[in-house]
Each structure stands twice: as C-alpha cells, then as structure tokens.
Design a protein around this nucleic acid. Sequence first.
DNA 1: TTTTATTGTTACACTATTAAACAATGATAA
DNA 2: TTATCATTGTTTAATAGTGTAACAATAAAA
Lengths: 244, 244
Amino acid sequence: MKQQKKSIRTEIFDWNQYLPGISIDCAIFGYHEKELKILILEYRKSGIFALPGGFIRKNESLDAAAKRVLQERTGLDNIYLNQFHTFGSLERDNPEPMRTVLEKNDIPAPDHHFLLQRFISVSYLALVDFKKVEPEPDFFSDSCLWYDVNDLPTLMLDHGQIVQTALRYLRSNINNQVIGQNLLDETFTMGELQKLHETILGENLHRTGFHRKMMLSDRLERLGKKKTGKAHRAPFIYRFKKQS
Amino acid sequence: MKQQKKSIRTEIFDWNQYLPGISIDCAIFGYHEKELKILILEYRKSGIFALPGGFIRKNESLDAAAKRVLQERTGLDNIYLNQFHTFGSLERDNPEPMRTVLEKNDIPAPDHHFLLQRFISVSYLALVDFKKVEPEPDFFSDSCLWYDVNDLPTLMLDHGQIVQTALRYLRSNINNQVIGQNLLDETFTMGELQKLHETILGENLHRTGFHRKMMLSDRLERLGKKKTGKAHRAPFIYRFKKQS
DNA sequence: TTTTATTGTTACACTATTAAACAATGATAA
DNA sequence: TTATCATTGTTTAATAGTGTAACAATAAAA
C-alpha cells in the first residue's frame, strides 16, 4: 500500500470543470480466492464507506467519464464496463455524510459546496482482473480496498442498494455476458470456471451439467496441455475463444 | 384533439424549480390496429421532432419525476414505467435544436437559457393503453402524436437512438414482462395476443407453439364466453390473472 | 499394483420447443 | 338440412436442452 500522503487542497480544487448534480458511481468487481470482491473506499477519518465515484467533465461524454473514473481508481484501461441503472431517490438528497467528511478533514463546508449538492448517480458495473488492480484512494479517502460482497460495511446513502442492484444485474447476465473472461486468468480449469459461477450466483451447480453446457456453448477452447498437481486425473485447461 | 391554445409565456416560467443538466425522456408505447406506436411531439413552427420529456424538481425523486412527466403527457396514472438507460453522449451537447425552437416562437434565447444547456437524459419506457391516452403537447409543442415505430420522422439529437434502445429493451423483455397486460384491452383472443408479440418482435411466431406456451405460463385465465363473428370456430377470450 | 480423489464422458429421464397433423365449430352456401 | 370453409383448439411426433446419476480415465500416493 502506497503511503505517500497527498495534500488535501480540495478547497482550491476546480469543481467548476464538472457538470453539477450528476455523479458516477462504480461497482467494481473482482474475483480472488473463490470470493467475489468489490472495491469500496473509506473517507479519511470519517468511518464513512462508499462506492468509488467521480464526476463528468463538461466536455466529456458519460461513458468516457465512467471509463476515466475507472482508470483513475484501478489504473486499468480497456475494462469491461456497463451502465446498469441511474439512482435518484430523495434519500440521496442528504449532504450530511459529505459534510462530515469535509469537516473531519478541516475543509470549509459551506452549504453551496459542490460536494454537498444533490446528485443523481449514474451507476456502472465493472469487471476487472483482481491481480492487475492497484486501488487508488482519492483526495478524501485513505483507503480503497477490496471487500467480499457478502461482508460489506454499511455504505453511505443508497450505495448499499446500488451494490445489490449491480449484483442482481451480474447474476441475471451470467449467461449472456462473458463474465469469466473478465474475472478469471487467461487460462483456467473447468472447476475454476464453475466455482466462479457458483460464487456469483450464490448456489451450487451440477458439475457435469455445467461442464457440458460450457462445452456446447462453443466459447471455450481446450488447450492440449494438462495441469499437474494432486493424486488424481489432471484437468484440461481452457481459455475463451478470441471472437464470438 | 383539444384546440385551446395555451399562451406561451415561457420566458417567465420558473426553470429554477428544476435540477439543471438532467432531463427525462420517455419512450411511450401504445398498440393500435396491429401497429406498435410511440408518442412523438413536434415543436411549434420548427419541424423539430422529439420524445416527450421533462425535468426533475428539486425535491422530487427521479422515478417520481418520470411518473409526473408521463401523467402530464398522457393524462394517465398507474402506468407501466421502467427506466432503461441514461444517455450522455457529446452529441447531446448541442443547443441548436432548442435555440431554433425558441427563436421560431419569438422567445429570447440567451446562451444561458435553461433549455440550451447540456442535458444528461435519463430515459424511461412506458406502456400505455392507446385508447385511454389523450396526448398533451407542452408549452413549445403544437402536437404530441402517435407514430408507427417503423415510420418515424427524424428525431432531434440522439432521440432516434433512444427509441432504438427502448425497442431492443422491449423485445428482450417480451417474455419477462407482462407486455400484453399494458398494451391490450382487458380481454383479448389468443390471436390478438400473438399478433402483439409478432408486432413487437418483428417476426412471425408459430401459432400452436405460442398458444401452448401462453397456456402453460399460467398467467392467462380463459373466460368461458366465446366471441362471435365470422364463418369459423369462435375463439375463446382471455385475460391476465390478477396477481402473479 | 492398488487405492484415492477428481475430472471427463456417456446414458437416462424429464422438460421445453419446433413442426405438423388433426379435431372442433360458427357461419355461409348449396 | 347438409356440405364447405376458415379459423381456433388440441394432440402428437421429432428435436433440443437440462438435471441426475453412473461410469471411465488418470495422476499421484500408499
């Protein structure tokens, strides 16, 4: 973890470069040690947890802004990224969490401060390679860490609902989207792919049925090699076909 | 069609009651004479066509705003309404269409006019009963009319893309959602329901397969009565079960 | 060589879907 | 009254897909 302390000079930060009233929140999923993880940031000194997010520059498209925010937080480009819902409940119209963050960091928090307005949140789902990500806290945050989706802290405002909506979206698209391609290594065994699906769906799948379905889907190619390891038949290793 | 001319006093309209930079656009679908229709409005004297839309009040949730906009345009409450995508391309960052509308109506159009800013559009899909709708033009519009989705005029900005996205959403959800419940009369024949599905999907379905699938879905109840008409067996009439 | 654990394959039952054949029936025409 | 016509409802056969279990293969350890 990088320990370089960034100077918090947000009072002179140019908030004016962004569109007011619209934020982007990202549910960034990764997969590690058989657990589905999501990136959560914690605001400095406040004990307030939130999804990583950002704002839209005045001459930037919505999708480009989401891509930029992702790049800033994960260091990754070319990420699987998908807008899934826009949240605008009145529950969001609550400046208190951000006021606490500002005050705990000794930043003036006048009522008209950019961060204290009501935001409509356009939310994106991202799937990233856990090992390639170097989470980057932002100005106000002292951590941006992976959490097991089943063991999350209480999140700010409606961010808990956003996560649940993202999870539903992920689960309902597990067969349409090429989930594994973005969450697994380049190559993997059938067992590893099945475990990923089970983790996302939160239920066990029948081994042979899953195996057959995947092979019939014609999206995998079997690499002739086998893996070595324990006292049993070695599994084939697979990878997703390039195009589909 | 109501002919009462509303006075166009938009220059004193209180735009300040709305959140800036965010609009709501509605793809409002109806079904009439075996055609899928969508409500399109034409701005007065300008030849500019657009989806009906509106803005979010400062103390109103996003969904409530969409419901209100729908109510204002169709006169209907309790509408099937579903957010499907938020559009924010730079193509939208173009004040010219609205400037034309304002100028053609002799309304001052300074650069800072509310309607000339860049809007991010949260788009909703609505399914309404064609016969119950009394389309209401807004301040700037001289018509709000039903168009066949296959015969639309050129729409403002990216509204054409919005319609196509809404159609894809509708087609992909034709089995998940209870489409017919919102687009057909209370009672209908199996042939009418099939024709609706065919119209939405743009392809022919097998009659007997469709019939059985619908009956097995356990969402229809057959009303003992039959319909009278032509020189052939009379069809049963059906309606959707109350709850599911 | 045998045992063990896990993977890959095959088989069977059951369900869903496609496609066609067939039966039912309200009006019309003979 | 009877035959026919057009359309709807039902049944059947063929095909494809899924859930489940049995069985075969095999790498390492005993």
